[in-house]
């Protein structure tokens, strides 16, 4: 019994008083110190109050700093979510933008196509409204005269100066009218002079035949820098041809601007004569 009490006492004493290489203070010393601090604080001693304020300020700031990463976690989480959302939104918007760009290109393409079709349609209406189909009777090639003879004449209401088209494309004009036949002067003939317009700025010029397969553009505006692949239409300035009949595409040949005709003059078998009223003064 006595031995057991001794063991208990030794264990208690050891636990309370033991110090070591790293244990600078014994447990009992620290306990007493803690109790003193507690009592001083509880009974509001001025010295301990002042010290406490200093400790509080220091520790509060330290606490604020140490908990900052954890306080940032929810914000970080929100930021990550926002970023993820923004990235997704950005991706969607990019896709939408791409789609809109494609649509814009499509609209531009359709607009251009619509413009072209409208011009063709206009010419179609004219052809369908007031036109007559004629068969090419003679297309004998001559070095000085590029013309064809058709099987329609004044009987069919054909007059001099009437435009002749192959499908929708201008091929020439009537220069000689008989009762049952007519002569068509082709665009590439040396005598052919047709007022045309082309390009976005509707540049005005005269399409002059040179006896070759491709007529050239003359009387272009000063300082105009011509370039190829522009659609040439009749301008209607002469009062003979209706405006907007497609003729061909521009093609650069050194300094000359030639026009590659839509309709090959050497391959005509049927043509359409536009029956329009042309005053003799104009012609």
């Amino acid at each position: 019994m006595s031995s057991s009490r001794d063991d208990f006492g030794i264990a208690i004493r050891s636990a309370l008083l033991k110090k070591g290489a790293r244990q600078k203070f014994s447990l009992v010393f620290l306990l007493i110190l803690a109790i003193i601090i507690f009592l001083l604080d509880t009974y509001q001693f001025k010295a301990i109050n002042f010290t406490k304020f200093l400790i509080n300020d220091g520790i509060y700031r330290l606490t604020n700093i140490s908990t900052a990463p954890f306080k940032l976690l929810p914000k970080l989480n929100d930021k990550i979510k926002e970023t993820a959302f923004a990235m997704k939104e950005n991706k969607d918007l990019k896709a939408e933008l791409e789609n809109l760009k494609n649509k814009e290109f499509q609209v531009e393409f359709l607009k251009n196509q619509n413009d072209s079709l409208r011009k063709i349609l206009e010419s179609d209406v004219k052809i369908k409204g007031k036109s007559i189909i004629a068969k090419v009777l003679l297309d004998k090639d001559s070095p000085f005269l590029k013309s064809i003879v058709i099987n329609r004449g004044s009987k069919s209401g054909i007059n001099k100066g009437m435009p002749v088209v192959d499908g929708n494309y201008l091929v020439g004009k009537i220069v000689e009218v008989n009762y049952l036949s007519s002569r068509v002067l082709l665009l590439n003939d040396l005598n052919s002079r047709i007022p045309i317009s082309f390009g976005e700025d509707s540049v005005q010029a005269i399409l002059s035949g040179k006896g070759e397969s491709k007529p050239v553009l003359e009387y272009l505006p000063e300082l105009y820098e011509p370039y190829g692949n522009l659609t040439v239409f009749t301008s209607g300035k002469d009062g003979i041809f209706l405006p907007g009949i497609p003729v061909g595409k521009t093609e650069m040949d050194e300094l000359d601007v030639k026009v590659n005709l839509f309709s090959d003059p050497n391959q005509l078998s049927f043509v359409t004569v536009q029956l329009i009223n042309i005053s003799k003064d104009n012609f």
Binding site: I35, I37, F38, L40, I59, Y60
Partner: peptide, 12 residues
């Protein structure tokens, strides 16, 4: 200090 308890109580 952080918890606002009387100083020394947690130490004890």
């Amino acid at each position: 200090v952080v918890m606002g308890l009387p100083l020394g109580i947690s130490s004890i």
